[in-house]
Design a protein around this nucleic acid. Structure first.
Lengths: 176, 176
DNA sequence: AAATTTTGTTTGACATATCAAACAGATAGG
DNA sequence: CCTATCTGTTTGATATGTCAAACAAAATTT
């Protein structure tokens, strides 16, 4: 029962993830180079915080430093940033296209979990999307039926303190 | 671009989530009551940590305290714990049953994100599961075809630093 | 060239979450 | 009853991630 500790065993934290993404985004038109101030503005935190955070990010070899104090993603940092973008994008597309979740909520949720998803999960999600959004008749039919199905059972709540274990046991059994 | 700060705006942190879940689990056969030592053992952290963590959890009204220093989930704490279980269970079932992810990995991933998923996401996931695992012919057919589809494109990588944006742009466009 | 603003760093503070170690009270064993 | 263990709390430490404020160096404006 110590699976829960895996939460702190990720390649990057949420904060580090967004520092890397900010650098990638800001450097897009400057050969990858970004400045502390711009990162701070992008993330809406102080320059001091960015300065401190970059210390360990540099030490871990995720960014390289300029002679003019600019920073750029290292190959490793770039690999991580791309992985994060791919995971977020795949999850958001799944939420939007398959589950029909509003863009705002899909953005928030996918942003929260992008750095926590395993590679296998991301890969399989992409497979599912490629299939469900393809023009394969089985996929088209299933998506159509699912949209109907959703409308028919809109009151199915997640878990409004149903002291009888609601849907939990039913699904837990299936996930064994 | 400050969506990323929503990460810290959840009802509970990962740590608090697991304190609540541990109390719920341990109290199962004791009318809901659990002891600090048992929580510490369950979570594999020290009694001191649990003692400190429970201070704020109590202050927030998520647990009630005994005259014999035992703790029990309040109605609010119970509601949160149930929500967490439902979200984890739904996500794990989706990973296992639909995506075909191994149990270990499904456990780790769903445990990491259970407290970060929005209610809408959980509800829609349950709808999707209810549909895809039903005996509706369209669902049965789609699942069969998807399993085949997975085998046919096993080399589709998530994002191995494809400097050409790999699948990111394709999916991002779909998720707009 | 001088004045002003922007930039990056450092410092001291706070919040969360953990540890080890010390301690006092409760429980249990002999 | 007395000792030994278990229990819960507290204290001091560490790590991350944030802030505000002060500062010096660089860049920009005038």
């Amino acid at each position: 029962m110590e699976t829960w500790k895996e939460f702190d065993a990720n390649e990057v934290t949420h904060s580090v993830a967004h520092h890397l993404l900010a650098i990638h985004e800001l450097g897009r038109e400057y050969g990858g180079w970004a400045r502390v101030s711009d990162i701070a503005r992008q993330l809406d935190i102080t320059r001091g915080s960015v300065s401190i955070n970059l210390r360990s990010i540099k030490a871990r070899g995720l960014v390289a430093e300029d002679d003019r104090r600019q920073v750029k993603l290292s190959p490793k940092g770039l690999r991580i940033a791309h992985g994060l973008m791919a995971k977020k994008t795949a999850m958001k597309a799944f939420m939007r296209q398959v589950l029909g979740i509003a863009e705002d909520e899909a953005d928030v949720d996918s942003c929260k979990i992008e750095h926590l998803l395993g590679d296998v999960m991301a890969e399989r999600l992409v497979h599912l999307l490629r299939f469900l959004l393809s023009d394969d008749p089985a996929a088209v039919d299933a998506m159509k039926r699912f949209r109907q199905f959703k409308k028919e059972c809109p009151e199915s709540k997640t878990c409004p303190v149903c002291d009888g274990q609601c849907l939990i046991e039913e699904l837990a059994a299936a996930a064994k």
